[in-house]
Design a protein around this nucleic acid. Structure first.
Lengths: 214, 214
DNA sequence: CTCCGAATGTGGACATCGTACACAAGGGGC
DNA sequence: GCCCCTTGTGTACGATGTCCACATTCGGAG
């Protein structure tokens, strides 16, 4: 049983053709299992069947690669949130709908955190630009970042009288704080390893708290 | 201007005498500026004036050192929380007191996160044992971990009728989620670099939300 | 069509890191 | 006073990020 890595797709052309994306893809896989610190430049190039230095033709340094991966991961968060909303069956009451769409934002966020902890941690590892992240790289299919989706849902609450207008400013930070904090607890805090169903319950409780306290 | 590091306290005895603590101390300083990833074994031994391998007489590996540092950082979190409570001037009303003590838990937590972001991140980097952390290494002067301090404050709320008893179970996770999430936003999220006063306000808003929604 | 420059990939090298193994020094119990 | 266990040293190895010089190829200007 020789230890042969499953790398090196043995390209024959001198040029790779799509190295940049291949690197992001490989790094994304590394991030999935192992989080941001597992995104190691040489491993990604190995997987792409290319010499380490080749990466520097597409990324300034490891940080730049990691940032690209982070953006990609964030886009997946957005897609999960969108999917959660899309799965909602419309009630007759638009007020109920607005509320459901708001909750779906949090639920999707938490779902992603549980299902893809590595990617989740990567998405918010070199953050700071969650709010103004280059929309196209960090957005989901609707072209909105997770943060924008949240803001939109909050606007919906106001619009339908579920949130007083004077409470709206800064509300995204309250909601985001609570949900993200729980995600942290679930991923590698004391709530780690919670049964999915229980985790879901915990999520709903946090969202309840937000609705009450926001 | 030769590049001379400010290391090597030039010990003369063959034995160091207190290497373990010296390493933790050095690593703590590394963590303060740079967070967990800045805790590099060789740097700590350098600072202690000792060869890299000497560390292995006291820690199984880098992870073990980091864990010790994490515990120490957590103890500081606890102390900051205790200080915040101690600074409270007692009201005549015990109910008001209970509430103030609860809020001080969150305020102290957030204060520490802002004042010592590196240590804060280190404290919860290899977490999972925040709840059951070896009490003596992660505790403050009162011998309680941050988590225990929170639980106690919540008990106080119940005791004085500020929190319905049936809402008590699991309440620490709701409160912790919200406060920790905000800490994350403040440290390296979109709220990073917020003016201390504004950060304080944000913290109070989150705690308001918790009180309302818990 | 040819040729040349810009883009892309290669090779080799270096500093730094974590860590393993064998050895040295010395302090404490008998 | 002797021996051994603890603690620190020396040397070494593989891995990583990154730098520099060189090779290969693509695509457009002539």
């Amino acid at each position: 049983m020789a230890a042969a890595g499953n790398e090196k797709p043995k390209r024959d052309t001198y040029r790779h053709g799509d190295l940049r994306n291949a690197l992001i893809e490989a790094a994304l896989e590394l991030a999935r299992q192992g989080g941001p610190e597992a995104v190691v430049l040489r491993a990604a190039t190995r997987q792409a069947g290319v010499v380490p230095n080749a990466a520097y033709r597409h990324f300034a340094d490891r940080g730049a690669l990691l940032h690209a991966v982070s953006q990609a991961a964030m886009a997946r968060v957005a897609r999960t949130m969108e999917a959660e909303q899309a799965a909602l069956l419309p009630a007759e009451d638009p007020v109920t709908d607005a509320r459901a769409r708001f909750r779906a934002v949090g639920t999707g966020y938490l779902r992603f955190a549980q299902e893809e902890p590595g990617l989740f941690r990567t998405a918010f590892h070199v953050p700071g630009d969650m709010t103004h992240a280059a929309a196209d790289t960090a957005a989901g299919v609707t072209g909105k970042t997770p943060f924008e989706l949240l803001g939109e849902a909050l606007d919906g609450l106001v619009e339908h009288g579920l949130l007083p207008e004077d409470r709206r400013p800064g509300a995204e930070f309250l909601a985001w704080s609570a949900v993200h904090g729980l995600a942290t607890l679930l991923i590698d805090g004391p709530l780690r390893g919670l049964h999915p169903a229980q985790a879901h319950d915990a999520g709903q409780h946090v969202i309840d708290m937000i609705e009450r306290g926001i």
